[in-house]
Computed example of a mutant assay.
Amino acid sequence: MNAGRKHDLRHVARARRREIAARMDAGARDAAARAVAEAVLRFVPDPGRVAVYESLPDEPPTGCLVAALLAAGHEVIVPVVLDDFSLEWRYAVPGAGADESTVRRPGRGGRTFRPDEREGWLGVDALAGCDLVVTPGLSVDAHGTRLGQGGGCYDRALRHREPGTPVVTLLHEGEQSTEDLPADPHDVPVDGYVTTTGRVVRLR
């Protein structure tokens, strides 16, 4: 039953996200990027390792966040989706966005990489050394239940983090859920979310 409800909720959430992104001009997107960066930086006052993701065009922008974290002395890692929906991790490159190697496509994994393409990557368990994990998501409810894209990549990856490491999801303002989202036993709740207005909501 949850699978069908999640499918319907994702359909609605993706349409809403497309509408929000379509209304944002370059100035609004730059303001959102700065607001997200300033808000997330408050979670990690001392230099450490932070896991982020390279945003797709309709997602809350993360390029400014990655640059700000690096400038503040943090080590930043970003995921690559493998064909089995596992997340490998590599060091962030300033200014990079998501491409065909990192994209999280609904219902599909990533691609298969040759061993030489994975040179210098950090493994699937790299979250174990993180001080903060920033995840994508379509919505989050008041209990920290996150509605992802459906591949389960992050629910599996988050099990590698150390207990107590905070996890926050980035949302456009208005994407947070006022109703409880369906949760399965394998779903990992998040500790809060940050919106594109810079609003920080701590849940757990």
Rank of each mutant, 00 (worst) to 15 (best):
A33I: 07
V93N: 03
L203W: 07
G192F: 09
L122N: 11
L69E: 11
E119M: 10
A28R: 15
R49V: 15
V93D: 05
M1Q: 10
R5G: 13
D180F: 02
G110F: 13
A98E: 11
A71S: 13
T135E: 01
T62A: 10
T169M: 11
L82I: 02
A35G: 04
V44S: 00
L147D: 05
S139K: 00
N2V: 14
R49T: 15
G174R: 08
G123M: 05
S101R: 14
P47K: 09
M24W: 13
D83A: 15
E38M: 14
E19S: 11
V52Y: 01
L9V: 06
H143S: 09
R202P: 08
V50K: 03
V103N: 10
F85E: 13
L56Q: 12
V133D: 08
V188E: 08
L132V: 08
T178W: 07
R34C: 03
Y53L: 07
V80L: 04
G95K: 04
L203I: 15
R18S: 13
L171G: 03
V52T: 08
Q176S: 12
L170W: 05
G63E: 14
R49S: 14
V80G: 02
G144Q: 08
R17F: 09
M24G: 02
T178A: 12
R202Q: 15
L147S: 07
F43V: 00
D191L: 06
A26I: 12
P163A: 00
P189Q: 11
A13F: 08
Y53F: 14
V80E: 01
V12T: 14
E162D: 04
V124S: 04
V12C: 11
R161V: 12
A37I: 05
D187Y: 15
A92S: 07
D116I: 01
H74M: 12
R16V: 09
L203T: 09
A28N: 12
A37Y: 04
G192V: 03
G107V: 07
T145V: 15
A183W: 06
A32W: 05
E162M: 01
G164E: 05
F43C: 02
D83V: 14
R114H: 14
D25I: 05
V188Y: 01
T169C: 15
L138D: 13
G110S: 14
A98N: 08
K6I: 04
E162T: 07
R161P: 13
D83P: 05
D187G: 15
H172C: 10
T196A: 10
R161N: 13
L170S: 12
A142G: 08
C130E: 02
S55N: 15
P136D: 12
D125K: 05
Y53K: 05
G129P: 05
T112W: 12
D116F: 02
V201R: 14
V93Q: 12
V93H: 04
R104Y: 02
G73A: 03
G150N: 02
V167R: 06
E117P: 10
V81N: 10
G148V: 00
R118I: 09
P61E: 06
V194Y: 03
R146I: 11
L69Q: 13
V80T: 02
G73L: 03
A157Q: 12
G120L: 10
P94Q: 09
H74T: 09
A22F: 06
G144A: 09
L56S: 14
G95P: 03
E175H: 04
L171A: 02
A28Y: 09
A92D: 08
D184E: 14
P106S: 11
L171R: 00
V44L: 00
M1V: 09
R161S: 13
